Amino acid sequence: MRAEIFAYYRRGGETARLTDGAGRLEFLRTWDVLGRVLPAPPARVLDVGGATGVYAAPLTDVGYTVRVVDAVAEHVAAAAEWPGVTAEVGDARALPADAASVDAVLLFGPLYHLLDRADRIRAWREAARVVRPGGVVVAATITRFASLLDGFVKGYLAEPEFGPVVDRVLATGEHRPPEGRWFTTAYFHHPDELPGEVAEADLELDRIVSVEGPLGLVRGLVGDPDWEPEVLARLRQVETEPSLYGASGHLLTVARRSTE
């Protein structure tokens, strides 16, 4: 992983990102999808790029056996503090796991920090290698238009340095902000790229799901008890509608290893 990415996460970039606002919506929607696509507990889950255990901990609480692999040592130490969670430093492109040894693999981070397509395919193939036949791989990606939308919603486009960042993302998918600002170096997928990546890993595409959808652009909906249940129910209704993929900050790609 690139030095500036390590620096971002060592500053605590994942500490509270999923606890409020759009981050909370991302968490709730991801949890909702996992509840429908993961095999039942006590299935074995390899959480690659699992950071501080934000998904590993609740998965363990409901009976899953969860092992976190993350490139950042500080993340691994924090994840290992959760009861029942094991964690180790590792690389998504060369996973420290035996072939067909887990029931599910989560790629909730690696794909958007691998700028080269060949590296992303290696990560997909490693997930395919370690998951059992019939098992599931769930991968998170940031969408190509996320920085453009954030630029208006969060006011970033008022700053002259942000416009060129958006221009580069729209042209190449590469998000390269000045260090310490507007996230960190990343790759933002166009939705049309995902089926090809899945196919090159010899996995079978199940579905692509928009996580926040366009409601991720609306402030104040999540955390409001009058709106939160309605938001989650309505987003589930339209989560696989392709025309809405680009309006979502994140996508989840659900793929399966063939049993043949």
Rank of each mutant, 00 (worst) to 15 (best):
A87L: 04
A51I: 02
L25R: 13
P42Y: 07
R44T: 05
V33S: 01
P41A: 15
Y64D: 06
G21S: 10
G23R: 01
V68Y: 14
D32V: 15
W82V: 04
R93T: 14
D32Y: 12
G21R: 07
T86Y: 11
W31P: 00
V85H: 03
Y55T: 13
G50H: 03
V48Q: 02
R36D: 03
F27K: 12
A22F: 13
E81F: 02
Y64F: 07
G63S: 07
R29M: 13
A71W: 02
R29A: 15
G35T: 07
A77Y: 05
E88C: 07
V102Y: 10
G50T: 00
T52P: 01
G63P: 01
T30A: 10
E81R: 11
V76H: 12
A78I: 04
A78H: 12
R29C: 08
D70S: 07
V72L: 09
A51Q: 04
T52V: 01
P96N: 10
A94W: 07
A71S: 13
W31N: 00
A57M: 10
A104Y: 03
R44S: 04
G23N: 00
A71M: 04
T65P: 08
D91L: 00
Y55V: 09
V54L: 15
L59Y: 03
D47E: 00
G35Y: 08
P96G: 09
D47F: 05
A77N: 03
A43Y: 01
D70R: 13
T86R: 10
A80V: 11
V102C: 13
F27P: 08
D20N: 06
T60P: 06
A100H: 09
T65Q: 15
V102I: 13
G63N: 14
A99F: 12
L95Q: 08
V66Y: 02
R44M: 00
D91K: 00
R93S: 13
A94E: 11
P58W: 00
R24A: 11
E26S: 04
E81H: 02
V76Y: 14
V69A: 06
D61Q: 10
E88K: 08
A73R: 02
V89K: 06
T86E: 15
A94V: 06
R36P: 00
A94G: 10
P83H: 13
A56N: 06
G90R: 07
A78F: 05
G21C: 10
P96I: 05
A94P: 07
A79H: 07
L46V: 05
W82L: 14
E26Y: 03
D103L: 08
W31G: 00
A97E: 15
L34T: 06
L46M: 07
V69D: 04
R29T: 07
D20R: 15
D20W: 10
P83Y: 14
V45F: 02
P39A: 06
V76K: 12
A97P: 13
V62N: 10
E81M: 10
G50I: 02
V89H: 04
D32E: 12
